[in-house]
Nucleic acid binder design. Sequence first.
DNA 1: CAGAAGATCATCT
DNA 2: GATGATCTTCTGT
Length: 205
Amino acid sequence: MPKLGPDYFSDRTTLQIARDLLGKILVHEIDGQRLSGIIAETEAYLDDDPASHSYKGPTPRSTSLFLHPGTIYTYRSYGLHTCFNIATTKVGTGEAVLLRSIIPLEGRKIMDKNRGQVPRKQLTNGPGKLTQALGIQMTSNGRDLFSSDIWIEMAESIPDAAILITPRIGISQAKEQLYRFLIEPKFAATLSQSIDRHNPQDQGR
DNA sequence: CAGAAGATCATCT
DNA sequence: GATGATCTTCTGT
């Protein structure tokens, strides 16, 4: 399966990129072992967003946000969690997409080990959880998606494996649920919470 | 160099 | 719905 190339993160708006990433596959390869999941929720951070780490210009922490599109930006949240972002648009702008949740695909045993045997619905359904499950660490900050052990692939079709790991509710129902998962507004790309505050009808996630 | 805040999560009521 | 865990980063002095 082809990796997404540099153009993917530069040719469209950040919001569009965030939408298009839904359904793609995030891969972290460790010792030849693939840990992966289907991207199910993303969040766009735009230049005019006061909550963005790039809002006040580059700082020691946020320099990778301003590098070329496809640069990985990780940061430590609340001293505990690692969150995974991808710089978008062009060099010098600080826009990015945060990956908020994935559907676990390959390497479930290792993910369980990394997460500590939580219920499967809670394995990768948050920005801090997916990095812990995939073993993605702060050291990936500043690398790029095209020449590192972390990348994003096209999904030619929804792999059967994805159906198998969805909740045990039968194949057809699982397919339907997975499809909803990918297109439902609730899980679609959103602006950050600071913008949500100005749109009270969007709150409650 | 001290102090505060934070793009979260698990656990509790 | 509230709270504590935990620590990096940024800001002001």
